[in-house]
Simulated assay, not measured.
Amino acid sequence: MQKARIPHAGRRKVYRGFGLVLLIVIAAVFVLPILWTISTSLRTPAQSFDNPPQWIPLNPVWSNYSAVFQQVPLATFFLNSVFVTGAIVILQLITSTMSGYAFALVRFRGKGAVFAMVLATMMVPAQTTIIPIFILIRYLGLSDNLWSLVIPAVGGAFGTFLMRQYFLQMPSELAEAARVDGASNFQIFARIYAPIALPPMATLAVLNFSAYWNEFFRPLIFLQSTNNFTLPVGLVSLQGNFGTGSVSIVLAGVVIALIPSIAIFLLAQRYFVEGITAGSFR
């Protein structure tokens, strides 16, 4: 007896429905912890561990947010994070865009070997280089200084790779025509290629902002003064001695720290998606 075959259009709908359900489950895994964080930040500590949890507080405690500013110098932490993250994002955009252009469109001896060494640095864990970097920071007199977080992060292998993949898609005829007119490599980069590289630059900016805004490891090692703390390190003091602080106030601080990352992503979302897919058609 011959089995009934599902039409091609029907199979496509089944696969699409399965994919949609899978995406909803994955999205829930990422979104539910954030919703729980926001919900708990609006409850009293005694209500934080109710079982089952109350996802929508009936009597939200907004004073948890004001308590964050009262217990720690949050404005100072925020400005420190803005300076460190902003400086790293701007400098990495400059260095990664220029190096990506050079590896993609400039001919020089040993380009492949140099690019391979740059990529190899992505396989080295940050924990293995933290001691040499710390020694160099002390030698330069930058201990307990915000620049100790900025300078080691000026260049990035991932940013170089991302920008190189985008520039490889650009027609080389543009550069050749500009050279005929007497333009130098820097003029070609600055006037022709850089202006059309906004999508991957926005992607790199968003990824770097998210990574360095939430960075905890390096600030914990390099900074000692409270006035120099960034947000992730500074918010730890909300836990109190031996973790006796209010979990609601701690999570209120976490929610405040999340706002800039979410805002940056929403503002650059269109360019972010374009930049992520830019290097996939080579």
Results as ranks from 00 to 15, higher is better:
Ile133Leu: 09
Asn227Phe: 07
Ile38Cys: 10
Pro52Asn: 03
Glu274Asn: 07
Val273Phe: 04
Thr129Gly: 00
Ser184Ala: 03
Ile264Val: 14
Trp55Pro: 04
Ala205Asn: 00
Pro232Asn: 08
Gln2Thr: 05
Val273Ser: 02
Ala257Met: 11
Trp36Thr: 12
Ile137Glu: 12
Tyr166Arg: 10
Leu140Met: 14
Met170Asp: 06
Arg12Val: 15
Met1Ser: 06
Gly155Asn: 07
Phe83Trp: 14
Trp147Gln: 13
Gly112Trp: 09
Gln71Met: 14
Phe134Ala: 15
Met201Arg: 05
Thr203Gln: 07
Leu93Ser: 10
Val154Arg: 05
Val25Asn: 05
Trp36Cys: 11
Ile131Ala: 06
Leu93Tyr: 12
Ile137Met: 15
Ile137Asn: 10
Asn241Gln: 12
Ser143Leu: 11
Leu74Thr: 07
Ala126Pro: 02
Ile6Tyr: 04
Ser184Pro: 01
Ser248Gln: 02
Asn51Tyr: 14
Ala9Ser: 15
Asn80Cys: 05
Gly253Ala: 05
Leu22His: 01
Leu168Trp: 07
Trp55Cys: 08
Gly182Asn: 00
Thr160Phe: 02
Ala257Leu: 07
Phe161Leu: 15
Arg179Cys: 04
Ser210Lys: 02
Ser261Ile: 04
Phe242Ala: 10
Ala257Arg: 07
Leu220Val: 01
Val124Lys: 00
Val82His: 14
Ile262Phe: 13
Val247Lys: 00
Lys3Tyr: 01
Leu32Gln: 09
Ser248Pro: 03
Leu235Trp: 02
Val124Cys: 02
Gly110Pro: 03
Ser248Gly: 04
Leu23Asp: 00
